[in-house]
Amino acid sequence: MLETLAQAVINGLLIGGIYALVSIGVTLIFGVVKIVNFAQGEFVMIGMYLSFFLATQFAVDPVVSLVITMPVLFSVGVLIQHFLIRRVLGQNDMPQIFLTFALSLLLVNLALMLFSANYRTVHTWYSDEALHLGGLYIPLAKLFAFALAMVLSAALWAFLHTTDLGKAMRAAAQNREVAQLMGINPNRVFCVALGVALALAGAAGSLLMPFYPAYPLVGQVFVLMAFVAVVLGTLGNILGALVASLMMGVAESLGIQFIGADSGLIVVFLMLLLTLALRPSGLAGGRAR
């Protein structure tokens, strides 16, 4: 019993690392640019397909292909901010919501047209390998994904707290107008926020590829979890999103283990409803960051 519990917690934490990469991106964009990116999951999907093609065409290991997917998606993020989001900022919420929602639909349907709805998988040497610790079973691919997700989250934290550009992003998140008075160009900071957030989504895609199939709608699985984590962890709060993502991974896994295979999302959404009823501003409460 105890071992089953420990195994379920481990499974949850491992997948929670991936949720964290997606939710940190959503919360970063919300915190800095003040828009909700409904298309975040689709960038995970693009990261997966990129890794899939690098693996099948050029024999690049999916985890190694991070070094390609992250810069590519960073550039995509900068372009999306500069040419699309910038035009709807300062208007009311509707154009902003519809912009990212339309982007999501467009990307899903483009993927359907280009790649068909078939599942694409990549088999690596570690896809079926696992560590056995006592009675516990830790799949290598998920362990790599979790470890790199934590490294990337820590790197983002360091960037935001030690570099001038990172501090400028936090300043813009806390007070956009006064940030401009400090000499900060808001569009530049927003471009970097979108770039970093999409790079993290791309990383999530690459890290998923050794143990998860790519298909056009795959992003929806992760974006749903990401939005719950972002709300649970207090909108705009990166550490909150990280912790909430891990908690949700564990809650989902415990639900699957002890209630039934289809109960994972039910447990997660119960957590969301309870949080919204009892602590509407999220577990971290109060102000964002």
């Binding site: 001038d164 806390q174 102000r287």
Partner: peptide
Amino acid sequence: FPEMSVQENLEIG
């Protein structure tokens, strides 16, 4: 900037 330290506020200045 409320969620930044005194020194960070000055640095961003």
